[in-house]
Write a protein that binds this DNA or RNA. Structure first.
Lengths: 158, 158
DNA sequence: CCCGATATGTTATAATATATCAACCCATGA
DNA sequence: TCATGGGTTGATATATTATAACATATCGGG
């Protein structure tokens, strides 16, 4: 519901619904959502923005959940492997997925002014088609755009 | 001519033709292709693959063109700003552009087996359209795919 | 001649990420 | 029961990528 664009949404509901989805996935797939993993995901969902690994680590550390880089990188590895979190390559930052569970080719819109990152999806399979034409077999994609979000675009015009 | 895919090509000609294009661009636009900048571009063209900044720096350093990180990062900043070199975000590596001068939304195909990176172009303006629909104004894009190139795909099957 | 813009030299440090090895937990099955 | 093996954690160290900051140099135009 709230997966598209820069519109406001019910954030509390969005966090708990995402956590529910992830918990179901984990029990169904027999993988462990351990305290550190769970907390990293919660932090990303609550902040609802792209965060650096060390920003997350600082919060974990304040809560006594570990203070060394491997703690957060392991959690992020787990969460990205299962599609609960995406890495924004352009920012070296991490963002909770807005529709975990469903397989997708996410497309991220990164506002260079307010640093908001919106997740949407590739509107077509053009990349797959183009790659196939060259004999290349795609396993994963990184699709990101940098620019101005609607709000910052208005401010820029004003 | 040789800008698409994983096919072989006349590499000597490709290097000198790219250098010619870049030199013309620089004199026309009154920007300086200084020795370090020129050599970084040559290195990337000659190797014809994505290289880390510190790999390039090691070569520069061996040639007496500077041994500190800012040397190579400044050259790369210049070259990427003018579109002669692209950064491959997924690899934190740099690749000479195969058709400098023309504006384009490059699409990179990264083979996870042989590490070859091919540059092609976005087949459509779907991303622009999708972003516009959300009110987002794109200024630049990062479009990369990781997978298997035709050669490595054959080996994998065999 | 001096000024401002552009580029370089140099030192230091920031920011991001991984390797390695020991220890622990716990479900499974001999 | 208890050995075993997979998955996880703890902890130390280090690798990799990138930038800040400030001094110096070069060069064309006013």
């Amino acid at each position: 519901m709230h997966d598209i664009g820069f519109a406001k949404h019910d954030h509390t509901a969005c966090v708990s619904s995402a956590m529910d989805t992830v918990e179901s996935y984990c029990s169904e797939n027999k993988v462990q959502l351990t305290p550190a993993r769970r907390r990293v995901l919660e932090i990303l969902l609550e902040h609802h923005k792209a965060m650096g690994a060390y920003d997350i680590l600082a919060l974990l550390s304040a809560e006594g959940l570990g203070s060394q880089p491997p703690v957060v990188y392991r959690a992020l590895d787990f969460l990205t492997k299962h599609g609960f979190v995406h890495k924004i390559e352009k920012l070296n930052a991490y963002l909770a997925c807005m529709h975990p569970g469903r397989s997708h080719s996410p497309f991220f819109l990164i506002c260079r002014a307010c640093e908001t990152v919106a997740e949407t999806k590739m509107p077509s399979d053009d990349l797959l088609t183009a790659a196939s034409a060259l004999g290349f077999q795609i396993e994963s994609t990184v699709i990101e755009a940098v620019g101005l979000c609607p709000g910052c675009l208005n401010e820029a015009k004003a």
